[in-house]
Structures are given as structure tokens and as C-alpha cells.
Design a protein around this nucleic acid. Sequence first.
DNA 1: ATAAAGCATGAACAATTATTCATATATTCA
DNA 2: TGAATATATGAATAATTGTTCATGCTTTAT
Lengths: 120, 120
Amino acid sequence: MFKMQTIDRCDCNVIHEDIVDKVKGKMPPEESLYDLAELFKVFGDSTRSKILWALDEAEMCVCDLAYLLNMTQSAVSHQLRVLKQTKLVKNRKEGKIVFYSLEDEHVRQIFELGLKHINE
Amino acid sequence: MFKMQTIDRCDCNVIHEDIVDKVKGKMPPEESLYDLAELFKVFGDSTRSKILWALDEAEMCVCDLAYLLNMTQSAVSHQLRVLKQTKLVKNRKEGKIVFYSLEDEHVRQIFELGLKHINE
DNA sequence: ATAAAGCATGAACAATTATTCATATATTCA
DNA sequence: TGAATATATGAATAATTGTTCATGCTTTAT
């Protein structure tokens, strides 16, 4: 008895069903993969990468970052919000100045792995 | 003699000039940071993350991937091109079938670091 | 109190990008 | 040779997103 399967989106046929089934069983849940992509998306912007790299060197306030990266205070502030939501940076307030610093020790490791790939 | 500096984009003042100068000296070249962001941008899409994850389990052809991920063959093919340009996957041809596989051993490590962060 | 400085934020705009659709190429098979 | 299958790709569309601009909040200093 042959198998007549209706395929939704794919406009071609499953060629190696055994492999597909095996891999399908090992795939992480949809949500994990989505979260993972969301995390890397944060690293996937030069501005945020620069901010993270800078904060890995020293705790800094928003104005310092804006000056260092030659950006408007607003743009930096917006991106810091994204980084904070992702729990990559934290901040503390001292008077009217807000200091930001890295929250996660993995940041440097992730960068280093990335560099490894780039430098083959 | 005080320093009168003209600031380009930043609409506020440098507060901690010593720190900024120190960090500025340690920042990687602009180009490295850009390339790094470009790499992570590739990981920053669920579709591509899924493809990479799947290929980490087994070598697969385009149709298999399309079926596994419930996507059109065209969409998968487009993303595979991106992954190949970034040297994250490679392919070999066998008749009319093209098999894709991971090219970089770091992929799994990068995913694992990402998961570590997500799971605190 | 009022001004000024540091920072946050909503809305608008511009740019990027993932997917779809149509079609082209390449290979196998009858 | 012609049909069918696997894959690639250009163009168009829709959705996402980074920055700017204007403005609001908070704290300090006068």
C-alpha cells in the first residue's frame, strides 16, 4: 500500500523520508528555535554589537556611549532598551546618570565564537 | 587650557572622557564589528536557525528541508544561498539532487551558548 | 522655582529583508 | 526527444526594523 500524502507548503516530494523523520524527532521545540533566533537577532546589528563590545570593556553611561559610537543619544537609548529586554545589559542609576554594563558573561564567548568563524 | 570639542551626532556631553578614551583604544576595527554583526544576522532568523539545526543532525536535500520545515522549496533555496555565502553550509550534487550539510563546526557551539543565555 | 542636563519614549520615515510567484536550468527517465 | 523532477533565481510584495525628531520625565544646580 503506497502512501498518498497531501503536502501543505512544499511544492516537491519528500525524498528521504527516513532521514526527515529522524531529524524531525530531534528538532527542538518551535518556541526554543524562535527564542534563539530572537537572541541572535540582537547581536545581528552593528550598533548593538558595538555597544556590547564597549560595555565588555567598561561600564558606561548613555552619553559616553553616544559619543564613543558617534550616534545620537536617542538612538543609543533605543538600542539599550532592546539589550536590556534581552537581559544582555543591566543598569544602575547615580543621580541623573544611568550606567550600563553587561549582564551576561556569555556575551564575550559568543563574540569569540563568531570571530573564529569569520577568521576561518 | 580647557578643551572645546565639537560633537557631531551626540546631542549630549562626554561625561567620563578617561573611560571613553580607554575603551576607544580597545575597540576592534569598524569592519570586524560589521562582519560579526552580519554573521549573527544570519543566525537571527528562525528559518535559517531551523535549517542549521536540521543540518546539524543530518545531511539533507532541499526538498527534505522544505518538507521538514513546512516551507516552499523556493524559500528554503533562497535561505540556503544566504547560508552558503556565509560559509555556514556546503553542498554536493548527486544527479539532480543537491545535498546540503554544515560547513562549520562552530555552529553547534554558537547555538549552545545561545541556549545557555536563554535558560539563564 | 526655574533652568539645564541626562535619559527615555512614541510616532514617522527610510531601509532592509523574508517570502511568494513565475520562470529558468539541469538531470533523469521513458 | 519530450516529460517530469529537483533546484535556482529575479522581481514584486509585505513585514520588520533602525534612526530621527519631538517631547516628556527626573535629577541637579542656581
